[in-house]
Every structure is written in structure tokens, then in C-alpha cells.
Amino acid sequence: MLVWERPEPPERPAPAPLSRERIVRAAIRLADANGLDAVSLRKVAAALDVGPMRLYGYIATKEELLDLMLDAVHAEIRPVGGNWREVLRSLAETTRRTAHQHEWLADLLGGRPQLGPNTLAGGEAVLAAMDGVDLDTVVPAVAAVNAYVVGAVRREITEQRAERSSGMDKRQWQTTYGPYLERTFATGRFPALATVVRDGPHLDADETFLAGLEFLLDGIEARISN
């Protein structure tokens, strides 16, 4: 029986009350602080000041714990809007915002299908907003938005981690590697790249994400209008 349908053990008020919700919240706090490597049933039990064996009555494996964590943060992803375009934009923006609040989420997005109640509620909201659009368009359109968000979020989180690891922010990186690029572009071997770097728009992460999202939504709208 899947964890979503398996009943919890009866409450035990002493020495420390437990529930799946308390276990999941403790795991999320650990992951928010130190990433998914900080999460194990043993470490979560220690954070709750209980023995590891007590957790097995509620959660059988670490994979179940990760599924529950992922669904718990999906409660923060609530796509809303008055039409399909607004709802898909809201889905993308709230997913991205949630991933930046819970950086470990980027490591789990795009994995196997999630079947938790919060995840299903978000999917229902998106599909309900696209009622009236033929399913041959709905399915790949929603998949395209999800794929765009997963790719963008993972790139942003990876860049943030690399920045922290290197100790260099964007300005320091440009100062370090800018002269090399100028020398390379001066050879004339990469004229298109040189033009983009020197004359192209220099968008920040928010602007880049929203611009790409609008391109994608424009394409979906064109398909629906045909």
C-alpha cells in the first residue's frame, strides 16, 4: 500500500508525539539548511529526539520520505488565474519561487510522477483551467511548461551553488574571465558570440526566466488559436 493510503500508527504522547507531518517538517528543515545529503531517517529521528525505529511505523524508506517532502512543498505551488495562460504562468512562477525557497527541490523536480494530494491538486487546477482545449494540445503544452521550468530552475540553482563554491559573484567572475574573452573575440573566430556578449541585452535571472516563459506561452497560444 502506498504511503498516501497507509494509515499512521496510533498516537503515542510519550516520550515524544510523532506524526508523518512532524517527520516531514523536520526533514524539510534539515534539507533547507544543508541539502538532501543531510536527510536520512536516522538524522530526522535525531532532530526529533526519538529513536530511528519509531519512524519506521510512519515511513518505511527514505524514498517514501522524499516523496512526502516533495508533496509537502507542492502545497506552496498553487497555480491561479482567470484563464489558461495566467494559470500556466502562475504554475511556472510559483514552482520557481518554491524551488529557490527550498533549493533541494531542484534535485527532485522532473523525477518519477508524483501522486501526493498536493501535487494532484496543482495538476487538477492547471488542467481545469485548460478545459475546452483539445487534449492533443493540453498534454504537450503542460509538459513543455514543466520542462522549461525544471530546466531553468536547475540551471539557476546550479549557478548559485557554483558561485558559493567558487566564492566569486557575477561581477568578480566577469573581472576574472572578461580579459580572456576579449582576447579570444579579438581573433575574429567567434563574431556572433562577440556581438551577443558586447551588444546583446544583459538580463538578470528573473528577466531571463520571464522572457523565455512568454515565448513559450506565445507558442502555445498560437497553437490553440489555429
Rank of each mutant, 00 (worst) to 15 (best):
R6F: 02
I77N: 00
L68C: 08
G212C: 09
V39L: 03
L68W: 01
L120T: 13
A33G: 05
G51H: 15
V3C: 05
S19I: 00
N34L: 01
G51F: 06
P7F: 07
F215T: 13
L55G: 01
R29V: 05
A162C: 06
P79S: 06
A75S: 13
E124M: 13
D134Q: 11
E64A: 07
S90H: 08
L127N: 10
G122Y: 02
R54H: 10
A33D: 14
L91K: 09
L70S: 01
R78K: 12
G151A: 14
A141S: 15
E124T: 14
K170G: 05
L41I: 11
T175C: 00
P117M: 07
R189P: 00
V126I: 15
A31Q: 04
V196D: 09
G111L: 09
Y148C: 12
L36P: 03
L66E: 13
V44M: 06
R161M: 10
V80W: 03
I220H: 02
E64N: 09
A186R: 13
N146Q: 15
L181S: 06
Q174F: 10
D32H: 07
G116C: 04
M1N: 09
L216N: 10
Y180L: 14
V133M: 12
V50C: 12
R189G: 12
N146G: 15
A141K: 07
N34W: 00
Q174V: 13
A128S: 14
P117N: 07
L2R: 13
L135A: 12
D218V: 04
P201M: 11
A45W: 02
P17H: 05
A194Q: 15
A16N: 08
E93C: 08
V196P: 00
